[in-house]
């Protein structure tokens, strides 16, 4: 049995080394980002890797006020809360139908929806822009919400479908006998039953919308309407900003994902495996 013990210890050691290395590849750039965000541009040039000699919060003030990140945060809150309500209703409703009801072409329609899930924003971008212009939805938060929900719903629908498919059907049957119509069934029965998965798709949806870039770039062209990701992506991509300010912007925009992650880790992990791993 001596061999077994050593191999176990070996495995543990290898595991630790790998995880530490992996953690470092994330944490080291992040660490440098934090210390850089507290330096002036002058200090960053002369002291790139050391701790800041004099801590300054100017970079944060710059990106929050002049860089408008504070304004973008407000925009994001409006966009995401509006988008999320619509997204949940649409995914839960469609998931209910696909998962629990029998109707002609059920599987074909569902597969069609899943087929559309793969296309990147850029495949449809030119036409989405044209349609949005025709409906006067350029520079409109409402327009972006509709496009976001259209783009992200297929995945949420798929997760809700697989979840609802595992719910026993007699619950709906008995509600139907009691005379509940379809909206009542959805609101009173399916949504409460689906609550854990709705929480999961809400976290996934929030992160997806928070991190979305292409559609925001196309539809929100007025600077004061932009989203946070759009703001920081444009700072780095098109207009080179001084490095310390860019890192401050990264710090600010990492806050929401990190907070969500700390509090809703369980749901994020659930979403990661839901709908994809099936034995």
């Amino acid at each position: 049995m001596r061999f077994k013990i050593t191999s176990k210890t070996m495995t543990k050691t290898v595991m630790y080394i790998i995880l530490v290395l992996f953690a470092l590849t994330t944490l080291v750039p992040f660490y440098f980002s934090i210390i850089t965000s507290l330096k002036t541009s002058g200090e960053y040039a002369s002291n790139t890797t050391g701790l800041p000699a004099a801590v300054t919060l100017d970079n944060f003030r710059m990106v929050l006020i002049q860089g408008r990140l504070l304004k973008y945060l407000v925009n994001n809150i409006i966009l995401i809360s509006g988008g999320l309500v619509l997204y949940i209703i649409i995914c839960a409703a469609a998931g209910f139908a696909f998962g629990k009801l029998n109707f002609p072409f059920r599987l074909q329609i569902l597969l069609g929806v899943l087929f559309l899930m793969i296309f990147p924003q850029m495949v449809v971008s030119v036409q989405v822009y044209r349609i949005a212009a025709a409906f006067k939805l350029i520079n409109s938060h409402f327009g972006l919400i509709l496009v976001w929900v259209a783009y992200f719903s297929p995945f949420g629908t798929y997760i809700m479908t697989t979840y609802f498919a595992s719910v026993p059907k007699d619950i709906i049957e008995s509600a139907r006998i009691d005379g509940a119509n379809v909206t009542q069934q959805l609101v009173r029965i399916m949504i409460p039953i689906g609550a854990p998965m709705i929480a999961t798709i809400s976290v996934i949806g929030t992160l997806a919308m928070w991190n979305e870039l292409p559609f925001s770039l196309l539809l929100l062209q007025k600077p004061n309407l932009r989203t946070m990701m759009q703001g920081i992506a444009m700072m780095s991509g098109e207009h080179g900003l001084p490095v310390p300010q860019m890192t401050a912007a990264v710090m600010v925009s990492s806050m929401l994902p990190l907070i969500l992650f700390l509090f809703f880790q369980k749901y994020i992990a659930m979403g990661a495996t839901a709908g994809s791993v099936k034995g």
Partner: peptide, 14 residues
């Protein structure tokens, strides 16, 4: 969780 844009900027600086 951080997403590709934040990762992209982090590494472009690093």
């Amino acid at each position: 969780v951080l997403g590709y844009i934040i990762l992209g900027i982090l590494f472009s600086v690093f």
